[in-house]
Design a protein around this nucleic acid. Structure first.
Length: 342
DNA sequence: CAACCGTGGAG
DNA sequence: TCTCCAAGGTT
């Protein structure tokens, strides 16, 4: 029974696997490059395939091996990651590459436990790399697996309490042969058929076994805790230029947008809008709105075309593509006003 | 364990 | 416009 389910899914995967730049075709017997598997898994954490694809191609073009990446400058890597979000991933990516290069001879550990010791690699990613790159029968549980298993076994316990039975359900179905293809098959099923909303149950290779579908409750699973409302924070952003250079600073490694290139800002708080200080040379350019994971942000943008010596940051040429999105929006305000702006 | 940490696309 | 959410990890 278990074997039948697993076999049916692998057969489905052989015909329906998505063609992704970090994959090898299913059942080819070849193993993908662990570096590419690792890089893709880090990028895919809480991030869509559509967003990752271009970043993955660019990273592997610039840094074809983990040794190349380990030798890169921090600012190059952070700039290349800009726009993808969750910037701690990029900082840990570099830490991890350097550990692999210097302490493991440029080769990734080939076990789940070994992978788990590396920066930025948690339980999901360790299992995924072990299964996909090294053919280990690791139990891979991500958001797709949670949804698929919650439905297949009709697990109605709310997350995160449901994690234990979900993991047990996945473990029971994980095969000794083709574990990497199996893990990717469940994820592809979750991404293309067993979707959060309007699942395509009629196309599902597990439709006749799915307890949730048979009970007519597939779309309601998994049950999740309600989300909290996002507060709104406000602050000031200082947009200063001298000719072709812009006033920039690097944000501290800890916290929001850590380690990224940035325009100087005030602190952001939920208090009423701070009165823009009446500074000579500065004028109010406009407003930038942006939403982060857990709060909304409204920044009043103060601009200066040729300000005096800055109290923080330094003037430097700018490639706006190396900025996090909120700062790219501020930069766009200026270029909209002045034409091309750079 | 719950909070923190980005972004853009879909509905 | 607004809510949801996507291959999670760290603290």
């Amino acid at each position: 029974m278990r074997d039948d389910l697993t076999a049916a899914l692998l057969t489905w995967y052989d015909g329906h696997a998505r063609d992704l730049p970090w994959r090898v075709p299913p059942g080819s017997g070849r193993r993908p490059d662990p570096y590419r598997v690792w890089l893709s898994e880090i990028m895919l954490q809480q991030t869509t395939v559509a967003a990752v694809r271009a970043y993955f191609l660019r990273f592997t073009e610039i840094w074809p091996t983990v040794t190349d990446l380990a030798a890169a400058e921090d600012t190059e890597v952070m700039g290349a990651w800009a726009g993808l979000g969750y910037y701690a991933r990029a900082r840990n990516l570099l830490k991890c590459a350097r550990v692999v290069a210097s302490e493991h001879g440029g080769r990734f550990p080939d076990t789940e436990a070994g992978l788990l010791t590396l920066p930025g690699i948690g339980p999901y990613t360790a299992a995924a790399i072990a299964a996909i790159a090294f053919d280990r029968p690791a139990v891979v549980v991500d958001g797709n697996v949670e949804r698929v298993m919650a439905r297949l076994r009709r697990i109605e316990t709310p997350l995160p309490a449901a994690k234990a039975p979900i993991r047990a359900a996945m473990a029971e179905l994980t095969p000794d042969r083709r574990p990497g293809d199996y893990a990717q098959a469940v994820m592809d099923l979750g991404a293309t058929i067993c979707t959060p909303k309007s699942p395509g149950c009629m196309l599902c290779p597990w439709r006749d076994a799915c307890a949730a579908r048979l009970a007519g409750v597939a779309e309601t699973l998994p049950v999740k805790a309600p989300k909290k409302a996002k507060p709104t924070r406000r602050g000031l952003l200082y947009l200063a230029r001298r000719g072709d250079t812009w006033l920039l600073e690097q944000r501290p490694d800890e916290g929001l947008l850590g380690g990224m290139l940035a325009f100087p800002t005030s602190d952001w708080s939920e208090a009423p809008t701070p009165a823009p200080p009446a500074l000579a040379d500065w004028y109010e350019l406009g407003e930038v709105r942006h939403t982060f994971t857990h709060f909304h942000l409204i920044l009043t943008v103060l601009a200066a075309d040729r300000p005096g010596p800055p109290s923080r940051g330094a003037f430097a040429p700018l490639d706006p593509s190396t900025l996090p999105t909120v700062f790219r929006k501020a930069h766009a305000l200026m270029t909209k006003r002045h034409g091309t702006g750079d």
